[in-house]
């Protein structure tokens, strides 16, 4: 093995070890401080309490139900966002005038803190899952449309001309050129979307919910059960990392070709 290669591998391993140590030390110090009663576990909870809470949740068969509720809401919002934003991007791409008219509105909507719409959603749609999903969609859709539409717009004019020399129809140009050309942009939008979507869903669950991780956290804080709040946060971290990595795998697959 070359010197450079072994050095590179060693470096990579060291970085990983340090990363693991940071997390371990963090939890260890937290636990020690809690055990020695230096910090008040009533306010801070502790790693062992969190684990216990998660096991309790699991034994009451609630854990996966709550995860499933949040996950399914996220997936529905995510899928709907994807479909709607692709359709809207196509409409904007096909109609330059509409795109120009819509441009300032999209910018305005993009900078609006979507959580402000929460009360309106609950009044219009009702205190139910639909409101939560709508919140997830609202948070992601504008960025999603802007990224995908700009991707469509940046398709090389020469490639479009090439397609025209083969008498390609608009449909051919879209399906064989614009869409595949932008697949990577769409997937990287998905990566951002999953994280954002989860934010929207948790926000929605804070506003109104009967189940889900956001519900657990909110309920925990209302009854001052910090173990439950922290457990919810931890589960959320794990969940979002898993979703993110899942999209990464898809992205890697695409990069290979």
């Amino acid at each position: 093995m070359s010197n450079y290669k072994s050095k590179y591998k060693k470096n990579k391993r060291n970085i990983f070890l340090i990363q693991i140590s940071i997390a371990s030390i963090f939890f260890l110090v937290w636990e020690i401080l809690a055990r020695c009663k230096i910090i008040n576990t009533f306010i801070t909870s502790s790693p062992s309490n969190i684990v216990e809470t998660i096991i309790n949740l699991y034994q009451n068969q609630n854990l996966f139900y709550h995860i499933w509720v949040t996950l399914s809401e996220t997936l529905i919002a995510f899928t709907l966002t994807l479909i709607i934003s692709i359709i809207i991007s196509i409409i904007l791409y096909k109609n330059d005038i509409i795109a120009k008219i819509m441009d300032p509105y999209l910018t305005m909507l993009n900078s609006l803190p979507k959580v402000a719409l929460g009360p309106i959603l609950i009044i219009w749609i009702g205190a139910n899952e639909k409101s939560i999903i709508t919140m997830g969609i609202l948070i992601t859709i504008i960025v999603s449309i802007q990224t995908i539409y700009n991707g469509f717009k940046s398709t090389s004019a020469t490639k479009i001309k090439l397609m025209r020399t083969f008498k390609a129809s608009d449909k051919d140009i879209f399906l064989k050129l614009i869409f595949p050309q932008n697949l990577r942009i769409i997937v990287s939008t998905l990566k951002i979307n999953t994280a954002l979507c989860l934010v929207g869903i948790i926000m929605g669950e804070f506003l109104t919910s009967k189940a889900g991780i956001g519900y657990l956290i909110l309920y925990g804080s209302q009854v001052f059960n910090l173990d439950l709040v922290m457990a919810g946060v931890l589960i959320l971290i794990i969940l979002s990392t898993l979703i993110y990595n899942f999209i990464r795998i898809i992205e890697k697959r695409l990069e290979k070709c």
Partner: peptide
């Protein structure tokens, strides 16, 4: 008629 453009315009994918 065949038409060859200024750039090769090959599709990378």
């Amino acid at each position: 008629i065949g038409y060859m453009l200024q750039e090769d315009a090959l599709f990378e994918w």
